[in-house]
């Protein structure tokens, strides 16, 4: 199983569990307890990490440079997004992007970017990684900023003159930003009827 050319395994006694902080450790295969390292894998360089490190946090960490306007976004939307989401983001057939604010506690909730999504950064993250559906990761950062601006403007969340970039996007407060709660389960009696 182990190639002779591989890095030798180093026998150093029981492995430190400090890396796993306070949680209870499951038992790991007995042999592994004697090895601090298996000598497998290689250190990742910034060049390795950068192309894949595309996630954006709610505080804006990870947002690339560049900027976009509502007007630019409208043109990109028409070309790249409207075929699936409809000319104004309402018609579909794919999920409605606009409207629905105030409907979540009704019998007919309409979950859209405007009514449901808690963070504007998520919109950037998702479009940048997964849209357009037929050509994911094909939009440049400034195009994504622009499309995000257009969708947020159409939802009445930002002004038409807003320029979105790594500084302004994380400051946007979405209408439903306080709408999420934790897992409340189990939420039933444990007694068999």
């Amino acid at each position: 199983m182990f190639k002779s050319s591989g890095t030798p395994l180093i026998r150093v006694g029981v492995v430190s569990v400090a890396i796993l902080f306070t949680m209870t450790l499951p038992s790991v295969a007995a042999d592994s307890e004697f090895f601090a390292t298996f000598g497998l894998g290689r250190p990742a360089t910034p060049t390795d990490i950068h192309p894949w490190d595309i996630d954006i946090s709610p505080n804006g960490k990870g947002l690339p440079s560049g900027q976009g306007t509502v007007k630019e976004g409208g043109m990109i939307y028409t070309n790249s997004c409207a075929p699936c989401h409809g000319p104004t983001g309402i018609e579909g057939p794919m999920p409605t992007l606009i409207g629905g604010i105030g409907t979540l506690n009704t019998d007919q909730p309409l979950k859209t970017v405007g009514s449901y999504w808690p963070f504007a950064t998520t919109l950037f993250d998702y479009i940048y990684r997964a849209m357009p559906f037929n050509a994911p990761q094909s939009l440049a950062p400034q195009q994504v900023y622009a499309v995000v601006a257009w969708i947020l403007f159409r939802n009445g969340i930002i002004e038409e003159s807003t320029i979105l970039n790594a500084q302004t996007l994380p400051t946007i407060t979405m209408p439903n930003h306080k709408g999420f709660v934790g897992d409340a389960r189990p939420d039933f009696s444990k007694v068999r009827p």
């Binding site: 996630d55 954006i56 946090s57 709610p58 979540l104 506690n105 909730p109 979950k111 970017v113 449901y116 999504w117 808690p118 963070f119 950064t121 998520t122 993250d125 998702y126 997964a130 709408g179 999420f180 709660v181 934790g182 897992d183 409340a184 389960r185």
Partner: peptide, 26 residues
């Protein structure tokens, strides 16, 4: 902290009758 991706905010969250949504219901 969680990245709050699309799949854990707009999808795979459970909308309750009061309009709140349960998140991270794993």
């Amino acid at each position: 902290h969680p990245a709050m991706t699309r799949e854990e905010t707009s999808k795979y969250t459970d909308l309750m009758p009061d309009g709140t949504a349960r998140q991270f219901t794993f």
